[in-house]
C-alpha cells in the first residue's frame, strides 16, 4: 500500500496589492485668482515692467531708477523682483551695468 501524502503549501495566492495613492499630483502655479491674473505667465507687475523696458529705445536700456519714476506707486522691491524674474526668463538682459536693462524683443 502506498500512502501518498500530498505536500501542502505553495499554492496560496498571494495577490500582490499595489497601493493606490489618491491622485494628488499638483503642478503648482497656474491661475491663482482674479486679483492676481497672469498674462503670458507674468504677473501684472512683471508685464508692466517688461512693457516699459520694451518701449525704451536707448542703447543702454532702461535704468531701475527710470522704471521707478515711470511706475509711480510700485514698490522698488517689487520692481527689482520683476526685473530679476524677467532677466531669469530671458525677456530682458542687463546692459552697461546691473542697473540698466533692455528687452530681448526690441532691437
Amino acid at each position: 500500500n502506498k500512502v501518498q501524502t500530498m505536500p501542502a503549501g505553495g499554492g496560496a495566492s498571494h495577490g500582490l496589492t499595489t497601493p493606490v495613492r489618491p491622485g494628488t499630483a499638483d503642478m503648482g502655479g497656474g491661475y491663482t485668482g482674479a486679483s492676481d491674473m497672469y498674462v503670458n505667465g507674468l504677473t501684472p507687475h512683471q508685464s508692466q515692467v517688461l512693457n516699459l523696458i520694451k518701449s525704451c529705445r536707448a542703447a543702454e536700456g532702461m535704468s531701475i531708477q527710470e522704471l521707478k519714476n515711470r511706475l509711480k506707486g510700485m514698490n522698488i522691491m517689487t520692481i527689482k523682483q520683476a526685473v530679476e524674474f524677467l532677466s531669469n526668463e530671458g525677456h530682458i538682459y542687463s546692459t552697461v551695468d546691473e542697473d540698466h536693462y533692455r528687452s530681448t524683443d526690441a532691437d
Partner: peptide, 20 residues
C-alpha cells in the same frame, strides 16, 4: 560692447529654453 552682446545672447538662450 562685448558685455552687452554676451548678456543678450545668454538672455535669448534662456528665453529659448523656456519656450521648449
Amino acid at each position: 560692447m562685448e558685455r552687452i552682446r554676451k548678456n543678450k545672447e545668454a538672455a535669448l538662450q534662456r528665453l529659448a529654453s523656456r519656450n521648449i
